[in-house]
Nucleic acid binder design. Structure first.
Lengths: 363, 363
DNA sequence: GTGAAAGCGCTAACAG
DNA sequence: CTGTTAGCGCTTTCAC
């Protein structure tokens, strides 16, 4: 730890007490013009900088937010964090970052460390919010927190999109394009609350349309090559015409796998993703996907958290659903014999029932 | 700040002094078996957790590393951070994160905040390390730091790849494939030390081959659409057959732009990137690029920094060059009339002169 | 308008 | 083996 010049040094140099220096620097009490000037000069000459550790110890506030996400490899979380940063910076908060790699034990450890570091609040994406015992810990410690992406059953502070209706929209787009034999491809975190919701919404929509139930395909998220699993799928359902992948990164990986298996995209098979990461629009074929307002989610979650912190209360226990948007793309192709266009005008951003109407200034 | 139970509470409950509790919990002195047991029980019953702020204040060490990168939008930095995390976790360090968005003023502000937070060391990617006055500040504060990606002129602790020879390799691959009219496309951070080096190596190799000098094209990094600039390039050099983009993300954006301009890739124009981000292998055409060991760079930089911190000294002032690898890809196509194959076997990882020989366990 | 002093949670002498 | 005490850098009464 550097910056060895302390309030004390400044005080001595300015010929006054530390209390005075503190008052001047914080504008928290009276001080004569002369004293003020002397202090300012001493500060400049000494290159004084507050030691925030000392301040935190005494104020019992660290002005630091803890973030815990599964990984940084998925750009979705990078975007979330940038959103959080934007809000944090506005209010003068710093960010302490931890990744848990979809491992509940790591999650536990990370949260523990964050607590020990005395963060003022926590922004989390848990593997499964409903099964997490960390939530109880946080409540008990009375530490404000907001979940991001998670869509828990219980009433917990969370910011996400309605995964169920979003998946229904995907189902609808697929059905409209003439796809009936499809599969839902999910990472090993299918045990995740949000993936579960997507799967349910997806299958329900198919059921309501009288279409055969989508096949569930689980892939190991660590693995880079999913060809074996995909081969298994085609053995089980040879006439599969479309895949709904639980996130864009997975969709990209699957597309690469399919091509290595000799398929042409989207002619041989259609793909839909989820998240709307930046690259999904740059590639060919462009990826049809559900665009989530990642940056805004991070920003909203953080500003809500900060608000709670500053007012010494918990963020409202309830899920804030932000508007998402299904974005058609070249990766989703209409099946022959169908005349409904697949790539019609983009569907408008649809606000789900629970979502607020406040305007979002997306980045 | 939560976790209101302190050492004092534990002491009272265990019927001993805070000193004893501290000794027991830190294994830093003698204690009878009974006392030990009483303390352990009290800790468990009270749910005690150290307040790291208090510890830091007294120990003058925060066990926290400050990270400052330009942005999280480029997966390269996300990978770097994951590498840092890996090393940090091993040694029990936490990460305080700041993004500066290629803005020197932001860089300054961020470093200042990180210093105030009493980080034990800093991991930085600066816009331009040679022109940064923050370096002086860090030296003056005697705060250990390591640059990542930057390749400064001065002898500063840094971990990167040899941008110059890497760019020469790209030039060589391009020339071998029959390209002579090319351009170097750089983000607005062409003022960055590393981009400068790449440009130099690239142009030198062309000069040595007696080929016309590559055109320099600068694009605004904020902008998503670079078609105007590209149109300008083609006006200036109509027979341009290949573009070397200063990073993969930019390459992807440029590829999308070219396609929107009606070009086919790689038939009409070849593209080479720099970084080797994960998606570059998933897309079609796959991206020819210089694969940098991002994860290892973060890991090495962090472990070097931690080593310096724990031994109360500065990291060795010198650039550690890690091996990179030019990876051919479908985006780089041989020009007609050339018989040398473009997509031969991958070139082996080439260790540059200054690089160490220690084995890297890439992730 | 200014200073002395207590104390935030913890560790580290120093006594006993 | 255990307790007392003095800070770490800062803010904040409470006097003067």
């Amino acid at each position: 730890m550097a910056g060895r010049v302390t309030l004390h040094d400044v005080a001595r140099r300015a010929n006054c007490s530390v209390a005075t220096v503190s008052r001047v620097l914080n504008n928290t009490g009276p001080a004569s013009a002369e004293t003020r000037a002397r202090v300012e000069r001493a500060v400049a000459e000494l290159g004084f900088r507050f030691n925030e550790i000392g301040r935190s110890l005494q104020s019992k506030r660290s002005r630091t937010l803890g973030i815990m996400v599964p990984t940084l490899s998925n750009p979705v979380f990078a975007a979330i964090i940038e959103g959080i940063q934007a809000a944090a910076r506005l209010s003068g908060y710093q960010i302490l970052l931890a990744c848990a790699y979809y491992d509940p034990e790591e999650e536990s450890r990370a949260i523990d460390t964050l607590l020990a570091k005395q963060v003022d609040g926590l922004l989390l994406t848990l593997t499964n919010a409903d099964k997490s015992k960390e939530i109880a810990l946080l409540h008990q410690a009375d530490l404000p927190f907001v979940l991001i992406f998670n869509q828990p059953e219980e009433a917990l502070p969370a910011v996400t999109v309605d995964n169920s209706t979003a998946a229904r929209d995907v189902a609808k787009a697929l059905l409209d394009a003439g796809h009936r034999k499809v599969a839902y491809v999910a990472g090993r975190f299918r045990s995740s609350d949000r993936s579960e919701r997507r799967y349910q919404g997806f299958t329900q929509a198919f059921a309501e349309a009288g279409a055969p139930p989508p096949v569930l395909v689980e892939v190991d998220y660590d693995r880079v090559d999913h060809r074996a699993v995909l081969t298994g799928l085609f053995a089980r359902q040879p006439d599969t015409t479309a895949l709904f992948c639980s996130n864009d990164m997975l969709a990209l990986a699957v597309m690469a796998d399919l091509r290595r298996m000799g398929m042409s995209l989207p002619e041989d098979i259609s793909i839909v993703g989820f998240d709307g990461i930046a690259v999904s629009t740059l590639i060919t074929p462009s990826l049809a996907t559900v665009v989530t307002p990642c940056h805004a989610m991070g920003r909203r979650a953080a500003s809500g958290l900060i608000d709670a912190i500053e007012n010494r209360r918990q963020p409202p226990a309830g899920t804030l659903l932000l508007p998402y948007q299904f974005r058609p793309g070249e990766s989703l192709m209409a099946r022959p014999g169908r005349n409904r266009p697949t790539r019609s005008a983009p569907t408008r951003a649809k606000a789900s029932p629970l979502s607020v109407s406040r305007k979002e200034t997306e980045r």
